Amino acid sequence: MEVISTTGRKRETYQVEIKHSPLWECALGIAAITNRRLLDSLDKPTIYWKEVRANLSKDLQAQLDYVETNNTWKALLQLLHQKDFSSLDAFIEYINNLTDRELIYQSIPFIAETYQSIREQAADKNVDAIEQLREATMDNPFFPSYISFICTIDSKQLKQHLIDVMSGWYDSVIRPDLEKLTFILQTDVQAKESMKKKMKPEEFVEWATGGVKYMPEPSVYKVLLIPQYIYRPWNITADLEGTKVYYYPVSNESISPSDKYMPSHFLVLKHKALGDEVRMRMVKLLFEKSRTLQEMTEKLALGKSTIHHHLKILRSAQLVGIEEGKYVLKTRAIASLAKELERYFQQ
């Protein structure tokens, strides 16, 4: 999103903060299992997700169906950003104590500083304000429908749903592996904090996320990095007031810290992505120039669903991005492959 600066100058850089909590993992797990389009590109195989869902209670399965229909995982993430919660009980208590209006306002996505007053009006169920937010987010695949839902849903119904799905997933999926998960997240944060001291903010964010290049913006003062295991290999991005958020995938080294032969997660991911004839052809096409999905389909004489599947893999490996509706090859990521491999052999 373009941000207009009234200061006449760009910020030189931003601060980087790293936080971790199993509550983020809980909300992102709910997001992952209800995003069927991405399940086949996640590190955990599709059978894992099928088995998890099959072993859940009927009530929790119904709550996940509701999430899938209305994208209420976004509300969970929005609310988790309101303060640092020490436990699930503290988060539930916070939700219970919110007024109806506070719940709706905090669940509405932050768009830009210029839309804050409109966001306030939308929380008061102002129809014109809701429509303005919908129009401002038309480029997002689910924001317009989510905004309509979140601004019109009965607050008490939403509150109970959020508590039920969060506590249900936490008890069923997070709590049994809580000790292991906490160790992985803590290990990753410690490694990132150590490297953070040695790099400039932009360089560090790119390294920590496996290739996401985020340049300073006038209205963004902080980048918040949140490690996650469940949504690997994807980086999930969000905007808050004055803050850019990346829920980034934990490294392989954080999962097996004592194994010196464990390669970098993104090194493996990149080589897997390139280890396919179709994807290699796609990379060469994008090396020539940026292309739309339709152009890729015509050049390769394959179905759109097939092309889209391969592009998902290339995007998750941070080799391909999207700019102005076209797929773009991240040439620097390709060029650095040899150096990354050499660094792995010499570590």
Score class of each variant (00 low, 15 high):
residue 320 V to H: 00
residue 250 V to K: 04
residue 5 S to V: 06
residue 109 P to D: 03
residue 101 R to Y: 06
residue 255 I to H: 06
residue 69 T to E: 15
residue 31 A to W: 11
residue 90 A to V: 05
residue 165 V to Q: 05
residue 138 M to W: 00
residue 142 F to E: 01
residue 123 A to Q: 02
residue 200 K to V: 11
residue 340 E to L: 14
residue 173 V to M: 08
residue 207 W to E: 13
residue 217 E to G: 08
residue 95 I to K: 01
residue 141 P to M: 07
residue 9 R to L: 14
residue 47 I to G: 05
residue 34 T to N: 14
residue 195 M to F: 14
residue 309 H to Q: 14
residue 339 K to E: 15
residue 323 E to Y: 13
residue 178 L to G: 05
residue 165 V to S: 06
residue 311 L to Q: 11
residue 164 D to W: 00
residue 70 N to S: 11
residue 265 H to Y: 15
residue 164 D to H: 09
residue 25 E to G: 03
residue 310 H to C: 05
residue 190 Q to L: 14
residue 279 R to Y: 15
residue 174 I to E: 06
residue 219 S to K: 08
residue 86 S to D: 11
residue 106 Q to N: 10
residue 73 W to K: 03
residue 67 V to N: 10
residue 215 M to C: 02
residue 17 E to L: 13
residue 159 K to I: 08
residue 338 A to P: 07
residue 191 A to C: 06
residue 162 L to F: 04
residue 258 S to G: 10
residue 337 L to V: 09
residue 56 L to D: 09
residue 226 I to K: 04
residue 200 K to D: 09
residue 73 W to Y: 14
residue 290 S to L: 10
residue 189 V to M: 14
residue 74 K to E: 06
residue 208 A to V: 09
residue 259 D to C: 08
residue 62 A to W: 00
residue 345 F to Y: 15
residue 237 T to P: 00
residue 290 S to H: 12
residue 202 E to S: 11
residue 148 S to I: 01
residue 106 Q to S: 03
residue 125 K to D: 07
residue 197 K to L: 15
residue 26 C to E: 02
residue 43 D to M: 04
residue 223 V to A: 13
residue 63 Q to Y: 10
residue 332 R to D: 14
residue 323 E to H: 12
residue 168 G to R: 07
residue 147 I to D: 01
residue 278 V to N: 15
residue 214 Y to L: 13
residue 10 K to C: 12
residue 68 E to D: 13
residue 120 E to C: 02
residue 22 P to K: 03
residue 314 L to R: 02
residue 334 I to D: 01
residue 94 Y to N: 03
residue 145 S to I: 02
residue 111 I to S: 00
residue 155 S to L: 09
residue 325 G to K: 10
residue 28 L to I: 13
residue 118 I to V: 09
residue 149 F to C: 05
residue 85 F to N: 02
residue 141 P to G: 08
residue 58 K to A: 12
residue 75 A to G: 10
residue 274 L to N: 07
residue 66 Y to W: 14
residue 3 V to H: 03
residue 323 E to D: 12
residue 231 Y to C: 12
residue 216 P to N: 08
